[in-house]
Amino acid sequence: MTMPYYVAPEQVMKDRAEYAQKGIARGRALVAVTYDGGILVVAENPSRTLHKISEIYDRVAFAGVGKYNEFDQLRVAGIRHADTKGYAYSRDDVDARSLANLYAQYLGQVFTHEMKPLEVEILVAELGKSEAGNRLYHISYDGTVVDEERWTVLGGDAEVIAGRLETAFAEGWTLAEAVRACVGVLAGPDRELSATDLEVAVLSRTNGTSGGADGRRAFRRIEGGELAALLSGPGAGG
């Protein structure tokens, strides 16, 4: 029988954290901000079909960075949780907090007990009836949950981008202002990002109240012409 080498727990955790951080840092960043009509999420993502931002439930959205297959599995698990909960109780009983806690539990469990931590960082956003009810839960690879107030940044270069967003953020700005600022913040001073490099979605309080929809589902992607128009509007480049 072979005895495993002794490795100090501190070292194990540190190695795992480093491994996860490296994986996450390789990916492109994502920012989420509140604006006057809801919550906006902007990600740098050249793919049109492999989404980083998705709908979970009526007023809850999911965003992930890092390894696609890992956060996508979490996304589907989130939809399953929300749909079973809404089906068993009522649609209003589904909230972001309980889902964020489940994710945190799972990520923490994997981080401490499995060989390999998940190389993901995720966001669970919930649109409130008013701005004060908005929730942004930022969950790290080790299960740490941070309840963010007005904005958050996930993924590679998060600290630098957060620094830029801190100065750019304006309380109660419009969607167009917020989109342009977020894109500028993601790109940084030396780059330009066009509509094809971006994935943009909102949880909007005024979503789908026309055209037959009942406005129950607040999630909406902003794509193609609509995104291009927002980006090239007055005051573009800010």
Partner: peptide, 8 residues
């Protein structure tokens, strides 16, 4: 209610 994850 828990997180439903399944083997492939």
């Amino acid at each position: 209610m828990s997180l439903y994850l399944f083997a492939p």
